[in-house]
Amino acid sequence: MFKKGPNWLENDDDLNTNNIGTKAYIPPDIPADDSSLPNVSGKIDSDPSPSYNNEGSSSQGITPVVPNNFEGGVFSINHYRRYFNINTNDFFGNVINSINVISIGEKSNEDDNENEIIGDLYGPIWVTATVIFCLFFSNTSSNLIKSWLIGGDEHYQYNFGLLTGAISLLYGYTVLIPFIFYIVSVWYFKLENFFSLSKIISIYGYANSVWIPSAILGILRGLLVNHQFLSGILKWIVVLIGGLISGVSIGLKVFPILKNSTSSIGNDKLIFGLLGVLGIAHLGFIIAIKVLFFGDLKVVS
């Protein structure tokens, strides 16, 4: 890159105090002449030190080194990179995998690699954030359309509390239920060969993705302003699509491993108890979303 100038800390051959006057000492690490400028035109320097041209960078890899190990304690950010070790293609694969309920049973037996065991936390965080935005967008935009149709859009005022409420509800459900499920299964019932906690959270997070299309479908209810009954039916359809598909997706992914674990401790009935509790929790979640974003529970309001 540049002529190997005197390294002012290690190489004390040329320490010369005459140079230090009233000016601050500037380490001579940066040559100002033109020979140091990046050589991108393809010409190779006679200087063997790493240069910025294509050959130099590709053969020696002097470009920024990217950490590829997850060393470090729980307080270092590198430790948590293992939960975010995911590419764009993997991410979309996971999303489609969670929406496509029919083929979940076939896939769950195949993948046993590291990423499958750990799961990833990118999905739970950002898929859930997307769902929050979509539900909020659906709610406010349908109200906006409604007020247009009634006449004059100055009347509509959005409810900011809706956004914060949605954040608490969705993140609370996606993190708390898997957490409690994990604690109860592993510490109370002492199940073995169980999921890692991050994997359950990952399953729950990706299962939320089906709420996105259903929330966008829900915008249509703004057009049904004069048809109370149809509007109520549409709201229930939207909520049930989201709730049922996400519930089935969670159930199908949790079932095989849960079955394996419970049968290994010889308590086959436990699986129905645990799945039943998860189902009730999910039902509560569906009802909460219906109340918060789609009016009350009545079909005709």
């Binding site: 890159m1 690490d29 910025y52």
Partner: peptide, 8 residues
């Protein structure tokens, strides 16, 4: 670029 590639 010098400091960019080889930090001192």
């Amino acid at each position: 670029f010098s400091s960019f590639t080889t930090p001192n």
